[in-house]
Design a protein around this nucleic acid. Structure first.
Lengths: 178, 178
DNA sequence: TTTTGTCTACCTATCGATAGGTAGCTATAT
DNA sequence: ATATAGCTACCTATCGATAGGTAGACAAAA
């Protein structure tokens, strides 16, 4: 999926808000005000909120995986380090939570298309990490479990580090995974 | 803090909604409708939303810790198992997320009194678990890190298991902590 | 001339919150 | 015993703000 300049700016704005406060924390009005158009014009690009929310999660997932590269490009340990570093960068450098971590927590309250895209984030990330763990010699099932465990640790580390306003806590929690 | 019958039912209702969709997912009107009073009467018991939210997090924290008992009552490993089991019960038996996990994720968007109570949940839980790890022979700093790591793993496991609608995933992720 | 993107203007529903009132209980003072 | 006063727990009615969403006009570009 490719987006126009305006559509991209809408997504940028919505993503920033959603990663701060979840699905109910971005609105057509606020997005419009931020990028200098009217809320009706936001509806032109994204007909309703569930379409916008689903697009948000889809673009986030694609960008996230694209930034990681193919799972086999380099050594397995280096890939794990890179994976953890991408969460670290989001939290500490960008000051934002994982969009799909937020959406995942409130998934029972989300419109179905948004929930589906949120699940896709975790499925694809478990696949990505699972390949790494398999490259390290683990069986498919165990690799998947370890992948899920690592993602859970990173999502949880974000929440605790953010809550306690202590960036170093993220590193201390993740120590050993990198 | 002790609450009247009605105040307790307000908190029960709000807690259930908040653990499903976060701070913006409960409203005075919806709570009132659920327990059969008017929204103005909810304001009688909790003057505004931040007071209600803070009371929610405070009661949740106190109940959570009370259910765990004193950290030294039994063997350290049994206490760790019990700690993980309390998250498991919430997720699988009650079908709910951790209230302060939800609030923690969106903490930057929360009114200050709610954010403070949310932080208190994590501080007190790290203290509780830290005592267990110290009883197992770890130094204070390392015990605190391991405590935070375990809480992060449990919060993250809830999000993934919930997102992927797979109860067994929670157990597989937590395997080894219990 | 059709499409694209934006606008004005509006809608209904809901939000948190407040004002003002009432029924019933309780405690004190006469 | 009775009147007075205050408190508790609710009510009706309403406020301004904001939510998501829609209809239709309009200008520029293809």
């Amino acid at each position: 999926m490719t987006y126009s300049e305006t559509a991209s700016r809408i997504l940028d704005s919505a993503e920033r808000m959603a990663r701060q406060g979840g699905y109910n924390s971005f609105s057509f009005r606020e997005i419009a005000a931020e990028i200098g158009i009217k809320s009706a014009s936001v509806h032109y690009h994204f007909a309703n909120k569930e379409i916008l929310g689903a697009a948000l999660a889809e673009r986030y997932t694609n960008r996230f995986l694209a930034a990681l590269g193919e799972p086999a490009d380099e050594g397995a340990d280096e890939m794990l380090r890179r994976y953890a570093a991408s969460y670290r960068k989001a939290l500490i450098e960008d000051g934002q939570m994982c969009l799909c971590g937020m959406f995942g927590a409130e998934i029972r309250d989300l419109p179905d298309p948004v929930a589906r895209q949120t699940r896709a984030f975790f499925v694809r990330n478990i696949q990505w990490l699972g390949q790494i763990f398999q490259a390290k010699g683990l069986g498919a099932e165990e690799a998947e479990t370890k992948a899920a465990r690592m993602i859970a640790a990173l999502e949880g580390a974000m929440i605790l580090s953010r809550s306690l306003q202590d960036d170093t806590l993220f590193d201390r929690i993740i120590e050993g995974y990198s």
